[in-house]
């Protein structure tokens, strides 16, 4: 198992290099002169060429890529063209909101999706209505759901601030928005997995031993469905981030997702480059951590 993990860690290195190359090339393919974007239209030609020299954009692509890799390896993800601050500082400032949004949504989706999935697997009567509900939940675009929630809860009922509010209460609607589709997917997965588990021999044996229902489903049932659920949750972080980009835009939350979109629109390419690389590295790390969690869940794998 340790061998497997080591191999996985070594394996991510070429992926990270490929990733950096892809992002680097995409950013260089962007139209427009980065020096001009940085200096503004009033800059003289002399200032511009000086700036190009300093930014290194007049060197060959290979040299630029190597310089990019070198600074990334030193923990320098570039400087924003707009604010002049390091990308990493800008991102760190906005990270808490995105993390809160994603984690609360994941928590909500986990409770709702897994709970209802198990309930439906135990009580077959619930399957059809809940399945129908999950189809709708899966099909609502996050940005539209967000707008509907704003329309109903903020504008009609006035319960929550419509957008850009401060404090915890302004997170309720965004979390609700982001929870829906994840909960629906999680529900379906849990239902299928748990239906297979309830039919398993060890469940019948455990029941025959006379243990309580809670122990039966909590210990024997749930633990055996956790592995596929963990895999899903690990992979879901990517989708969750995509959803967070849209949700933050709808609710005008100052998180990483909306920052990325504004940087994209303002062509602040060091930010996009640094942010994408950083975000993807985090996802690769999350997938590794999920593999580690398998060990904690399933003792059979520890051997």
């Amino acid at each position: 198992m340790l061998h497997y993990l080591l191999r996985r860690i070594v394996h991510t290195i070429p992926v990270l290099f490929g990733l950096s190359l892809l992002i680097f090339l995409l950013m260089r393919a962007l139209p427009g002169d980065p020096a001009l974007l940085y200096a503004g239209l009033e800059a003289t030609e002399a200032e511009l060429s000086d700036l190009r020299e300093r930014m290194g954009v007049n060197k060959s692509l290979l040299e630029q890529y190597l310089a990019f890799i070198e600074s990334v390896l030193h923990g320098d993800f570039g400087t924003s063209l707009r604010s002049g601050r390091p990308v990493i500082v800008e991102l760190a400032m906005r990270l808490p909101i995105t993390v809160e949004l994603a984690l609360f949504s994941l928590l909500g989706a986990g409770l709702l999706g897994i709970g209802l999935g198990i309930a439906a697997a135990i009580h077959p009567k619930l399957v059809t209505p809940l399945y129908l509900l999950s189809t709708i939940g899966l099909s609502l675009p996050v940005y539209w759901l967000g707008l509907l929630l704003i329309l109903f809860f903020s504008l009609r009922l006035g319960w929550f601030p419509p957008a850009g509010g401060l404090g915890r209460s302004s997170l309720i609607l965004p979390v609700l928005t982001l929870t829906t589709s994840t909960a629906a997917t999680l529900f379906r997965l849990t239902l299928t997995e748990y239906q297979a588990v309830t039919a398993a021999d060890y469940m019948r044996t455990a029941k025959a031993k006379g243990i309580s229902n809670l122990r039966l489903h909590g210990k024997h049932g749930l633990r055996n469905t956790l592995i596929p659920l963990m895999t899903f949750i690990g992979l879901e972080f990517g989708n969750l981030f995509g959803g967070a980009v849209l949700t933050e835009s709808v609710f005008a939350l100052n998180g990483i997702g909306r920052y990325l979109v504004t940087s994209v629109i303002q062509r602040d390419y060091p930010v996009v480059q640094g942010a994408v690389l950083l975000i993807c590295s985090v996802f690769i790390l999350i997938h590794l951590v999920v593999d580690l969690i398998y060990l904690a869940i399933d003792p059979r794998l520890r051997r």
């Binding site: 990270l16 490929g18 990733l19 892809l22 990517g238 981030f241 995509g242």
Partner: peptide
């Protein structure tokens, strides 16, 4: 496989977003 893995390392929506800005 290497190319596929690199593309898969980027969350889908982010990938589409980055491609969409590179093109007009």
């Amino acid at each position: 496989t290497g190319c596929t893995e690199v593309l898969m390392a980027i969350p889908g929506f982010l990938l589409a977003l980055v491609i969409a800005i590179t093109l007009k």
